[in-house]
Write a protein that binds this DNA or RNA. Sequence first.
DNA 1: GACGAATTAGACAATGGTGTCTAATTTTAC
DNA 2: GTAAAATTAGACACCATTGTCTAATTCGTC
Lengths: 234, 234
Amino acid sequence: MKKPNAPQPKTGGPTPKGQCAKRVSILDAAADVFCREGFAGASIDEIAMEACVSRQTVYNHYREKETLFMAVVQDIMDRANGALFSILATFPDNGDNLEDDLTAFAVRLNKNCVCNHDGKFIRKLVQTEGERYPHLFEIWRQQGPGKIGTALSALFARLSHVARLDIDDFDLAAKQFLALVNADLPMNSFFGGVPTDEELEKAARAAVRTFLRAYGGKPAKGAGQVEELREEPV
Amino acid sequence: MKKPNAPQPKTGGPTPKGQCAKRVSILDAAADVFCREGFAGASIDEIAMEACVSRQTVYNHYREKETLFMAVVQDIMDRANGALFSILATFPDNGDNLEDDLTAFAVRLNKNCVCNHDGKFIRKLVQTEGERYPHLFEIWRQQGPGKIGTALSALFARLSHVARLDIDDFDLAAKQFLALVNADLPMNSFFGGVPTDEELEKAARAAVRTFLRAYGGKPAKGAGQVEELREEPV
DNA sequence: GACGAATTAGACAATGGTGTCTAATTTTAC
DNA sequence: GTAAAATTAGACACCATTGTCTAATTCGTC
């Protein structure tokens, strides 16, 4: 029952542009349709149409609907993961201008990881298909943006060494930071549109202000050596 | 997927009789299946099966699939709305024991409105079908739990008259309160299971502590009762 | 018990989806 | 230029679903 024309694994060299372009095109279209219609509601014909490709080509590249679906998920996860870590790398590393720096960071995070197309897709996906494909949810939590919380936690721990932050539970603080940052986003960002830059900025600043009201500024009442911090065990 | 025909409805309590029982049974089953499979993935046969009712009866009561879907949505919205307002009525009205009272309130809110079956359904629904049925989203935002934010806002305003709260934007504070309360919930509450009472309590207390660190305690600089304000920052 | 309304199982056409197959055509590689 | 591979359109079998219809059966009520 093997197909006569088994696709040769390309040896990493100059992969034919046409073929690769089709793959990408299919993946993009499939992401779109799956996101819009859900797994059950998406039809291969619609995907092929949107990818400007014949249905058979879809089946040639991805054996069946579920295979295609998984490939889409993996693709989006990888992209989202890349974006996430590139943004996390811009987390402030000094306390000179905490409010502004954290606000700008929050804006970047929301704009590139949470509110963008991929973020929306993943959230929708985990909610709608997480029950049917439990390992999807597992992958998301382990290797995907689900671990944003722990990553942020470490960054806050680092930051607390050089800035006035009175955090005792970094994990909790990270989760709360994320929650606050999304608290004031307009709800239509749930599906339809991406919030404007102004909305993002406003929401982020409000969140950071509250966060710093809760966690900002060490007591600093009794001692005078607050400028430079002592080393603390992690 | 269940027993083909079990004449006994599963709902306990005062069972409505006759056709009314069937209606309720169908509505319940439909909510279940729609929530699990989405609109496109849900089949009338499955709903009829789960409701222990023939397919024709479903069509007799609700003309077609979309009618049934809308009826389910309306039903869940009404229930959720009722639960929400009964919980909002228990919002603390004095500041004698703010942390405990707000924590208990947050637990009630999460347990009965956010993490329960209806809340999960509505959230999933708005995300998956909000695009296809925009008026669904509109109804949700106007008459449903979507307005929880504004309601809470008024309650915080009331509370601030009799408690030590330094809130300038009640609307924002309400949104942030809600966000914080959900920040530390275990993620599996997203679909699978309801968090345990311990998890709810822990998450709520952490949220309220942070909230009160940010908003609790009016400046009160002129007075001398500062010692009670902030204790043990560790 | 009897009558009418509700319910049931099952058949049914229509539709739309998946996945396979073929034969023709285009693209790519050599 | 030629051969191999990829792509295409279209037909196809198969299956699931929706919504209708009918004839038998059960239920509620008198």
